[in-house]
Design a protein around this nucleic acid. Structure first.
Lengths: 207, 207
DNA sequence: GCCTCGGCTTGACACTTGTCAAGAGAAACC
DNA sequence: GGTTTCTCTTGACAAGTGTCAAGCCGAGGC
């Protein structure tokens, strides 16, 4: 039997061997989910991309959904700090916009599968109630992340922001999604276009 | 055997009995796809929501993908004219924005399942190449639809638009998607918030 | 009446899916 | 050393999938 499930580890053992295995599985799950999408990524395929066999998933997770949610949370937790350096290192408003645009395009180039997985899950949450909680929570942390950038930008520019955090996030997320789709479709200028558009749009957010 | 497939109807019969059945099936498919999403909507379930049996799908369509693409095209073809009255009937810039915002919220209220299906397919096209062609094409017609609204808005206001069609569509689509998710999550103020936000954002698009 | 043929249903196929029970192997503990 | 506990593998299950072949049924032509 697995350690009692919701309350982690029932044993005295090295504190988080259990959590460590969960993270290991999450890593493999992310690879597979990012490659195939939520619907097509089977537990067997996920296990194939790990050092374990397919049965082990139910030892560490109650079901597929718990694994998926755990994995995405695991990933997004690392990523909400992605633009912190943009906020802390920029000394002028223009610098900040450039650094922000550069980071946006960089993360598409380097982690496109993870981003499409995120959009996949967010869209699936429109159909499956069970996903909604985790999605909403992650969406908020992303919104906060964007808001830190935008409000720092306003600070450096000396003008107040003219939109609320929701609008700022919604607009930029729309552009990001567009660029991601273009990039995955093999459109070569998608990333450069995104950078240009972000530079164009950011000033519109200030009063 | 079905009439030769890509070139429609091989018989002398009432010209488009064949196409009529395809549309009938598309209608049922849209109901099911909007309720369950692309991945979970099986052909048997789609046929159950129609007057036919599950085998008939392969009589009128080559495979599931062809049915899905046909269905979404069928739906979106009716819907790209949704805002035409906004463009033609508004006499002032403010009127136009109000009418636009009203239509946006109305279509979420009345056709939320269709919209989430669209976002589902667009996201799936990030994973499945076969979907990409149809998605790209529909996306462009939606972009044009939005552009007609925005450029008429600029005309009425007497100021030029300061962003290109892609940016205008990307931004507004981001807000729309956000509102749709909020609405489906049961957040009661999602639609009113969208209207407020659209009224706030539209002026930002003008120079 | 008989035959043909388009339209549709039925039933089956091969396969994949999430899930779980049974048990092997090793480590931990007395 | 023996026993218990943890970790993991194997193999099976029932359910569901897209697909398609075989055949039923009724209308039209002769």
């Amino acid at each position: 039997m697995a350690p009692t499930n919701t309350s982690r580890r029932g044993a005295v053992r090295p504190v988080d061997k259990f959590d460590q295995r969960r993270d290991e599985l999450a890593e493999s799950a992310l690879t597979t989910l990012g490659a195939m999408g939520y619907a097509r990524a089977s537990l067997r395929e996920i296990a194939n991309n790990s050092t374990f066999s397919h049965g082990v998933v139910h030892y560490y997770f109650q079901d597929k959904l718990e694994l998926v949610i755990y994995s995405v949370r695991y990933y997004k937790a690392r990523c909400v700090t992605r633009y912190d350096s943009v906020v802390s290192d920029s000394t002028t408003a223009d610098d900040l916009v450039d650094a922000f645009a550069a980071k946006l395009t960089e993360t598409i180039r380097e982690e496109a599968p993870m981003h499409r997985l995120w959009y996949d899950l967010r869209t699936q949450s429109m159909f499956e109630d069970q996903l909604r909680g985790a999605v909403t929570e992650i969406d908020h942390t992303l919104q906060d992340m964007i808001w830190r950038v935008v409000s720092r930008y306003a600070e450096l520019d000396g003008r107040p922001v003219s939109v609320d955090p929701v609008v700022a996030y919604g607009m930029l997320d729309g552009l990001f999604q567009q660029a991601l789709l273009g990039y995955l479709s093999g459109h070569p200028t998608a990333l450069d276009s995104l950078a240009v558009r972000v530079r164009k749009v950011m000033p519109l957010l200030l009063a």
